[in-house]
Design a protein around this nucleic acid. Structure first.
Length: 465
RNA sequence: GUCCCCAUCGUCUAGCCCGGCCUAGGACACCGGCCUUUCACGCCGGCGACGGGGGUUCAAAUCCCCCUGGGGACGCCA
């Protein structure tokens, strides 16, 4: 058993998004590969914006993706007394101090600094001011050194160095007494014995000041690994305007979790030319060394391709359950779910998502097809009345009602009438499915059954124009 | 603006650390063909990249520097 301990620490201010999911995945994979411990920690120190609903949604998404955790979820909101103690400790040791500046004053200074082209950092007004009057609201700031440099070697990015005078004295405790992110993340990572901090690129800038806090707390440093960002097609940070970003919305759109996992892992990580990975394979092969350093663009097309791959190779029985869920989402109840695996076999080669499959297979579940006007006009014509009538007569006697038998039956009609397959199949397809696109008619008819088939053909007779 | 990071086909990437095997490989998308009862699938083929400039070297996608471009961070958010 290795001593590796990693954590995924989302803040419950919304659903789990694509970027967070990939960070979680990398943590999970690293932990499993190293036979370490994967911890889930909910960063809800912002009591105003955090909600239980978000927590539930995040956990649901993690489970759907198959990212099981070994410890937690721990809630930072339940650990406030620990943070308070640590703040007191730093205060006592002079490593932190009270600041009485008001938010308004700070905002003004920030704007002025920006306008003058300086880096907007806290100016240290309260650094040496000592005790102020009781009752005045204050925040606690961490005292960071104003000379020297802080350097660390990122497992993904390599050496990173920042001059300490670039760092200002950040707030570690708000005026309402609650602690802030940059502080609790360090306290908890220390307390929980985190050995590797694997997180998004956007935290690189926080790392030096966090390192300073590890030192102030007298704690050993973990290793850091900063995973590059995921961008939208316009190369800006991925957000809602680039399309769906919530993990669970992909489930709704008919994506398989293994497809999303496979897509996400390949966005930033690679193993030679291999594209397809099962979770087991990933656990076997994942390594931080093979994570790239540059940001990547989220490409829905490739996700779609992977999804179609997993649908093609998926177990029909399992897919049937998921297909049923999609059909129900469309408001279509499934009277005979036992025939769904057969439906899946018919469609899994052709559809890229389960949602698409549900749409294309809906005619099998509906009581009657939904007719497409153009298709009806083109194929359900008076000229085809004879053909349909002959067909009905032949299918009434077709025994057994199987793919082979039905095909033979139709071939016989073709031979007698001299019509080509295209001329025969399309009218049947429209009569049965309502449209011009579907799997082979010889597959569809037996699946629908003789009675239903005949009923639809007879109904079509009434529609002829 | 300041700081940090990044830079191979449209996109994800292999190659870069340990220079020659790279006339730069794979995948998605795209284009063409084949297959075909429709639409797909599948198969075959094609298009397509080392951002620019300086070095170092017999030799640079690979090492160094500058420029440019992109992203991120600058909160009593995380």
């Amino acid at each position: 058993m290795s001593t590796v301990r990693v954590r995924f620490a989302p803040s419950p201010t919304g659903y789990l998004h694509i970027g967070g999911a990939r960070t979680a995945l990398f943590n999970y994979l690293f932990a499993r590969r190293q036979q370490g411990t994967f911890i889930l920690r909910i960063e809800d120190t912002d009591t105003v914006r955090s909600t239980q609903q978000s927590v539930d949604e995040i956990l649901k998404a993690m489970k759907w993706l198959g990212l099981s955790w070994d410890e937690g979820p721990y809630y930072q909101s339940e650990r406030f007394s620990l943070y308070k103690d640590k703040v007191q400790q730093l205060l006592r040791e002079g490593k932190a101090y009270r600041c009485y500046c008001t938010p308004e004053e700070l905002e003004q200074k920030r704007e002025r600094a920006m306008a003058e082209g300086r880096k907007p950092k806290y100016d240290g007004t309260c650094r040496e001011c000592g005790k102020a009057s009781e009752g005045t609201p204050f925040v606690v700031r961490f005292r960071s050194p104003d000379s020297g440099a802080t350097t660390f070697s990122d497992l993904i990015k390599g050496p990173i160095s920042v001059q300490n005078d670039e760092l200002d004295d950040i707030i570690i405790q708000r005026s309402d007494g609650t602690p802030t992110y940059n502080f609790v993340v360090v306290v908890d990572d220390v307390e929980m014995g985190i050995t590797h901090v694997i997180r998004g690129d956007d935290h690189v800038n926080n790392t030096p000041r966090q390192i300073l806090m590890y030192q102030a707390l007298g704690a050993p440093l973990p290793a850091f690994a900063h995973v590059p960002m995921i961008l939208g097609a316009d190369k800006t940070r991925l957000s809602k305007r680039h399309g769906a970003t919530s993990v669970m919305s992909y489930e709704e759109m008919g994506f398989l979790p293994e497809a999303l996992v496979n897509y996400l892992v390949r966005l930033g990580w690679s193993h030679g030319d291999q594209e397809i990975f099962s979770m087991g394979e990933l656990i076997e092969k994942f390594s931080l060394e093979n994570v790239g350093r540059s940001a990547g663009v989220f490409n829905p097309e490739k996700l779609l391709w992977l999804n179609s791959h997993y649908i093609k190779s998926g177990d029909p029985a399992r897919l049937a359950t998921l297909l049923q869920k999609q059909l129900e989402r469309m408001g279509l109840g499934v009277a005979d779910p036992e025939k769904l695996p057969a439906v899946v076999r018919l469609f899994q080669e052709r559809d890229k998502t389960l949602e698409e499959m549900a749409k294309n297979a809906a005619f099998l579940v509906r009581k009657a097809p939904e007719f497409d006007g153009t298709a009806v006009e083109k194929f359900l014509t008076e000229a085809n009345r004879g053909l349909l009538e002959t067909l009905i007569g032949a299918l009434e006697k077709c025994e057994p009602f199987t793919h082979e038998a039905v095909e033979k039956c139709v071939e016989k009609i073709m031979a007698e009438t001299g019509l080509k397959m295209g001329k025969v199949a399309q009218p049947i397809r429209v009569a049965i499915t309502g449209g011009t696109v579907s799997p082979s008619v010889f597959e569809i008819l037996p699946l629908l059954g003789r009675e239903e088939t005949l009923e639809r053909l007879r109904n079509a007779l009434a529609l002829l124009k």
